[in-house]
Design a protein around this nucleic acid. Sequence first.
DNA 1: TGTTAGCACTCTCAACAGGCGAGTGCTATT
DNA 2: AATAGCACTCGCCTGTTGAGAGTGCTAACA
Lengths: 343, 343
Amino acid sequence: MNIELSPRSRQILEAIVEDYIATAEPVGSSAVARRHALTLSSATVRNVMANLEELGLLTSPHTSAGRIPTEKAYRLYVDSLVALRQVSREEKRQIISHCRQAGVGLSGILKETSRTLSQLSNYMGIVIAPSFTADVFRHIEFIRIGQRKILAILVSSKGALQNRLIETEDDYAPEDLVRMGNYLNDNMQGMTISQVRESILAEMASEKVQYDQMLSRALKISEQAVRDEGDEIFVEGQARILDQPEFSDAGRMKEIYQAFEQKGLLVQLLSRCMKADGVQIYIGAETSLSQSAGISLITSRFVTSSNTVGMLGVIGPTRMGYSSVIPIVDYTARMVSKLLNEV
Amino acid sequence: MNIELSPRSRQILEAIVEDYIATAEPVGSSAVARRHALTLSSATVRNVMANLEELGLLTSPHTSAGRIPTEKAYRLYVDSLVALRQVSREEKRQIISHCRQAGVGLSGILKETSRTLSQLSNYMGIVIAPSFTADVFRHIEFIRIGQRKILAILVSSKGALQNRLIETEDDYAPEDLVRMGNYLNDNMQGMTISQVRESILAEMASEKVQYDQMLSRALKISEQAVRDEGDEIFVEGQARILDQPEFSDAGRMKEIYQAFEQKGLLVQLLSRCMKADGVQIYIGAETSLSQSAGISLITSRFVTSSNTVGMLGVIGPTRMGYSSVIPIVDYTARMVSKLLNEV
DNA sequence: TGTTAGCACTCTCAACAGGCGAGTGCTATT
DNA sequence: AATAGCACTCGCCTGTTGAGAGTGCTAACA
């Protein structure tokens, strides 16, 4: 849409965005003319800036301050202006070594990953573990491991495994459990795990089940076994966004932290990103996190050994170092996928 | 130590502390004289206040401001001055209903509990799940549930159960797994689970094991089964402390959030509290969290059905509503214990 | 026609001064 | 021992002023 911009305008816009990212302060015409060794006078720059303001790419906080980029400008910037930095050798080393040191266990690795993201970007690192319930159901098994304690083992068609401990009101004989397992294995093939759950719930509500206590209990247990425990989500480096001058104000801060406390919001937002491949960028209002507070989000997918998909990324101010964070997120996602698949 | 205070001094100190808690502003002599319907003039109060300041119980931020209580004063206040409020019927209702609605699962209940604590107190709610590794080892079992996937089920002497999925490099026959289990069950009786782990690690290091690949692998798996996954910890309502006027400053805020990010610190702090029964209170520097930022901590223990011990509590500013928060923490701990035991 | 130099104008910010009010400490009095 | 009175201190608020940064406009120039 903004292709009508002349090369010079684009160049100036880029300069302004980068200056503002670096300094967090409104940038004036002379600063652009000077710093960027354009062979232009400040007056010319001013004209161009006035244009850009009319196009909705810049605003001035007040008459005699410089100008700051709008979200639209950031959008244009990341879409067609930004020159991505390479991930430095040192950064690569850190990403890899951090991932490895976390040892075994998906949770451990992902937690460490979110910490690494935060450290390298100097913003907030975020990782969402692959969700299980979207996978197709393959097999379930119930094992009695104690009085009134049952272990459910659930296998998805991709080979992902999940086990869950269930405490029951009554005691069950092993053969009952086998029957329960068989029933589900026979009847629920081909559904996703969340569909399995819905189907169980539907049955529980049906009349004939209401009066069959035995069946009713069995369904109840099955339901627990396939219940969605909620995605695991790792957020690290929340304190870092306090470094950003634009968030030194307590009111804004509060808004942000409150938004983050509802992890549900984050999950919802990030599951949107799951669908597409590669790095995705959401700027300001596009994040639909806390409308006003200028937050941006850079994410990418990663894939586990069992082909489930998770999400990782960085949350920071709109005024974010896109040129370095984008490659970092990209590289980290690749590395995590690789690491998870080679085990 | 402070028993030398006259009743009147104590009364005045109490008034000051409570006023300050209510307003977050230095309280002056006339305010005390007026508000508290003492039959005293402000001048008299001033004398007493000068005394209290000399005793290190009050400070003035500057000459012509009122005075604010020191940590020492809060200590004295909670130890012998505070009149605890009753937990209101409405609060009780909320505590109970929130706990119940969380449904099954220890994690779910505890998470909901920390949220409730935060809501009722208007500060930060915190819950630490019972640690498992301090329990005495009773029984372990390994079950093969897939290619290179083993499920370890660990039972403590108190009946608490923990299961863990282990991915291995090689495949194991069921009979190997049975042997591994038997070995541990026979040799590790009477130790705590963390001792079991240490003993396994010691064996792994011993020479004769180094050359027995089979044994070495078996130990490696066992070690994973008894590894301490770190205590589960639930923190809720972080944003609430931003409501407190004393934390509207960005620098202080940052300090606090950074302290909380190292959950290790919290765990360490809270495990101290595990030992004693009843409500425990840590004021300011006593918390050994971020030295300067005036943070207080009110905690109590709770007990699960398998007799393991967890911790719950509230973190807030030193200037905290002790009179209402203490009873809330106390009551919640009792309720959680009760709820966990009646299932 | 696009670019530049110059200039008047606007607006913020920091510094300063003065008045206000809250609160204190001291002293004399009851 | 408690109180009333009083002088004093000090932070906070307000208004003012000057400096500086940046803009928009206009006229001149290539």
